[in-house]
């Protein structure tokens, strides 16, 4: 069977199954279990309406429960067992992690990523949003800066390989160095410590567009009177930006910052594609992948460390949304 035909067939089956479930379940509820006729008409309608939300919710609760809620518990229990999964080792995997140089390196690098990427992307995004705000071709410029959002991390890594390549005829950086008179090409991905920043730059490049789009909407939402009043009072453009505009969009800046922070914690593609975790560039997600398929106990314990890092943001998010609901 040709791959295309197989794809079309499976799509039809999957989607058909979904539509069939909702339509069928609803039909069964109304016609078979609690038919809206006969002596118990009113009671049947009430009962059907009590059950219906759960019919609508069931696939979602089931799927997200199985694929996101269960793994939190499942991973934790798995991380208490050894490689084979049969011997209980307690916190053995965690004590191994914290005594392992690779893990400490990954943790340290991850903190660097968490410091640099959200700050960099938010700052560049804010700059782009502010600069393009009044331009006639601002939307066009924004669309180009936003474009990397559509590119996969693997694709973006390849794109940047053409910038970082250890060859003055391929890599832009080495071409610039050669133009400035440097003799030998350098591999920027092998410079200890600083190579991390070259990798972070890729994620900043991708995420700036996201920050820009959201912050630009927030900037547009600032009441114009406040800006005009500041201008009349003689504020300089810089003062207007830092004293008038920035404080008013602080809430949005925090949201953008946390969103990018969360993303940074999960990205393993860039490190995996660019350096494979070599030359001291390992971060937690890529460190975890080095155990994947080999030692499930250690892989899950790294995953759980990532979860613990995410936890404060999760709690803050839930509290925030409950506040809005009230």
């Amino acid at each position: 069977m040709s791959p295309l035909l197989q794809a079309v067939l499976t799509i039809a089956l999957g989607v058909g199954g979904c539509v069939g479930y909702f339509f069928g379940a609803n039909l069964v509820l109304d016609k078979v279990l609690f038919p809206a006729r006969g002596p118990h008409l009113a009671r049947n309608i009430t009962r059907a309406n009590m059950i219906r939300p759960w019919v609508f919710l069931f696939p979602a609760i089931f799927a997200s429960g199985l694929y996101l809620a269960y793994p939190v518990v499942g991973s934790f229990f798995r991380s208490l067992y050894d490689r084979t999964g049969s011997t209980y080792v307690g916190t053995g995997n965690y004590t191994f992690l914290f005594s392992d140089d690779g893990f400490r390196q990954a943790l340290l690098n991850n903190f660097l990523w968490l410091l640099v990427v959200p700050a960099g992307a938010t700052a560049f995004g804010l700059l782009a949003a502010q600069l393009t705000d009044r331009l006639r071709w601002g939307n066009f410029a924004k669309s180009l800066i936003f474009m990397p959002m559509a590119i996969s991390f693997v694709g973006a890594s390849l794109i940047w390989k053409f910038v970082y390549a250890n060859d003055a005829d391929i890599g832009l950086i080495n071409a610039l160095r050669a133009a400035l008179g440097a003799n030998a090409a350098v591999d920027v991905l092998q410079i200890p410590f600083w190579n991390n920043f070259f990798l972070m730059l890729i994620l900043v490049w991708i995420q700036t567009g996201f920050a820009m789009v959201i912050l630009s909407a927030a900037l547009r939402g600032i009441p114009e009177e406040t800006v005009e009043a500041a201008i009349i009072d003689g504020a300089s453009p810089l003062q207007i930006f830092f004293r008038i505009k920035a404080p008013q969009i602080m809430g949005t800046i925090v949201v953008v910052w946390t969103t990018i922070t969360l993303l940074t914690l999960k990205i393993f593609d860039i490190v995996y594609t660019m350096t494979g975790g070599n030359f001291g560039t390992e971060i937690l997600p890529s460190y975890m992948m080095s155990f994947m398929f080999k030692d499930d106990g250690r892989a899950t314990s790294v995953a759980f460390v990532i979860m613990v890092l995410v936890l404060p943001v999760m709690i803050w998010n839930i509290r925030q949304s409950r506040k809005e609901m009230r």
Binding site: Y67, R78, M292, A303, M314
Partner: peptide, 12 residues
């Protein structure tokens, strides 16, 4: 659940 890291789900 919005913020649960994917990594957690892989092994289980």
């Amino acid at each position: 659940l919005l913020v649960v890291p994917l990594q957690l789900a892989l092994v289980p």
